[in-house]
Simulated assay, not measured.
Amino acid sequence: MNKVAQYFDERADEWEASGSCERNRVQGAVLSLACVQEGDRVLDLGCGTGVMIPLYLEAKVASATGVDLSTRMVAYAREKFQGVDAVDFIAADALDLDEKHPYDAVVIYNAYPHFMDKPALVEKVYRLLKPGKRFVVAHGKGKDDINRHHQAVAAGVSSGLRAASEESELWRTRFDIEALVDTPEFYAFSGVRL
């Protein structure tokens, strides 16, 4: 089993109670940076138990697809949103996703350090997005807090975060980077598919 999937499977039962799923003030900014609009098809990579799904639904998206390596996290998400037709969850590696039907927005919220192959992720997001559409990588805390937290995480589960200006450089090969946020309370970069 993948180390990242195992790490989150082991924490799935306590995830909701840990406060990791609470709605916070930066989540609306995440939607704005991804330019999520009514009628969009949104892909949420590293969705966990679906913390962003209520915001997508409030934005009246046509569909929201959550993808996570952890089958246990996806099971919780499916239970929370069962009966909501616009929502689907897939337990899979994002790098294995079908690219036949590209999305209007790709969101990676509170999950980016757990994507270990960043160059492959950039290429995959590029192929999963429609031309001219946006992605966002974001965290509800600053990089220093995230990196301190991830020091206790086993090797191979997290890669940590560099400054948003540095981290986004890899993405510039395929995207026009339009926003960089690197504060103690919020970390994000976003861009448009070239």
Rank of each mutant, 00 (worst) to 15 (best):
I146T: 14
G191F: 00
G191R: 02
V136D: 00
E123G: 05
L161D: 02
R72Y: 10
G156D: 02
V61W: 02
G46N: 07
V51E: 10
G39W: 04
D145E: 13
K3V: 09
H150P: 02
E167T: 01
P54R: 00
F135S: 03
K130H: 06
R72M: 12
H150I: 03
Y187Q: 05
E38Q: 14
K80R: 15
A164T: 01
N2S: 14
V30H: 01
M52I: 05
V51I: 14
S70G: 05
E10A: 12
A154W: 06
A91P: 00
I53D: 05
V67W: 11
A34W: 12
D44N: 04
H101A: 10
L57A: 10
K100M: 06
V74G: 07
I146R: 06
V125W: 01
A64P: 14
A86L: 06
T49H: 00
R127F: 01
H114A: 05
A120V: 05
E178A: 11
R172V: 03
L43S: 08
E169W: 08
L180Q: 03
H101N: 10
A59W: 00
G142A: 03
P131Y: 08
K133H: 11
R72K: 15
G160A: 09
R11F: 00
L55R: 03
V181M: 04
D68H: 02
V4I: 10
A120S: 13
I146Y: 06
Q151V: 11
V107Q: 00
L128P: 00
C21F: 08
L129G: 08
E178H: 06
R193H: 12
L31R: 09
G28T: 07
A64D: 11
D145S: 11
N2T: 08
E79K: 14
P131E: 11
R41G: 12
S18Q: 08
